[in-house]
Design a protein around this nucleic acid. Structure first.
Lengths: 150, 150
DNA sequence: CAGTAATCGTTGGTGCGACCAACGATTAGG
DNA sequence: CCTAATCGTTGGTCGCACCAACGATTACTG
């Protein structure tokens, strides 16, 4: 009785979560292709960009800000450090922590990847006007705010 | 020179692809939790819902309509058939194909999962007005249309 | 101040979704 | 007719998200 109409229009293809996942899937694919040229992946970019922007941070902080699990941060930072894009140093003020900082090469790479990301955004949002892009960004931001720690 | 402004406002958190992926991630998590109660996953629902809605189809067709790889369709249909939710029968008109049909139990499960999905949509879009929900759906639909086979 | 709780980095593992290559069987098209 | 395309299937790979547990360290609290 009470659930006759909900999905009546035309199932699946109009379900918001479906649309969200599919478009995100396309976005991820485009991003991956872009990142492949740098031989890095999404996690690396998130960390590098956050570091380049907000300055040095501990791994746990990075994880929280990037939405990456602590354990995954370890591996990604290992990769970045192995390439000389970041430096991992023990925090003298708290010996539990490591302080991660970008190197000059890391900042360069962050800038280059940023350009790649910008290009992908343009491809992704190609069919939308700039007003619509802002609308989309606004709506998604509100959803995100609501669904995690404000 | 030309790439000074693009990501200047506040990196990452305003990048559409980031917003898209994060919200989709939340949606996926909510959906997974919902599906867990049915002991099924996303692939199963997509296939079941499509079958229940559009009627019997070949595995390849299902894959195309659901955005699932042929090889993954095999495994998912195995699961569904093993539970008696669908039936896999050779197509007499084309011996390469299998015709997949929902059983009565499958239709029931599809309906129940549909209710779960509807509930998740409400949770997901809770902070948006119905006008905004339509906006979001419209924008995502256009992006999706543009980015795959029209 | 002592003892418990919390945090940090790390290791190792899980699950899901997306994708790719190759195969034999079958069908369609030139 | 024969080559190309399609289908189902097997058996992988990869990226992202997540969880449990550990020793080491720090913070909290009684």
């Amino acid at each position: 009785m009470e659930n006759a109409a909900p999905q009546s229009p035309a199932g699946l293809s109009t379900t918001p979560s479906w649309l969200l996942n599919q478009t995100a899937s396309h976005a991820t694919r485009l991003l991956s292709e872009g990142f492949a040229a740098h031989d890095l992946r999404g996690y690396h970019y998130r960390l590098l960009a956050t570091l380049a922007e907000d300055g040095p941070a501990s791994q746990a902080d990075l994880g929280r800000r990037c939405g990456i699990d602590r354990s995954d941060v370890v591996a990604a930072i290992n990769d970045l450090a192995g390439r000389g894009l970041v430096v991992r140093a023990p925090d003298p003020a708290d010996r539990r922590r490591n302080v991660i900082s970008v190197t000059a090469a890391g900042a360069d790479e962050a800038r280059r990847m940023g350009a790649t990301v910008d290009r992908v955004q343009r491809d992704l949002l190609a069919p939308l006007s700039s007003t619509e892009r802002e609308q989309l960004t606004r709506l998604l931001t509100r959803l995100l705010r609501h669904h995690s720690g404000r």
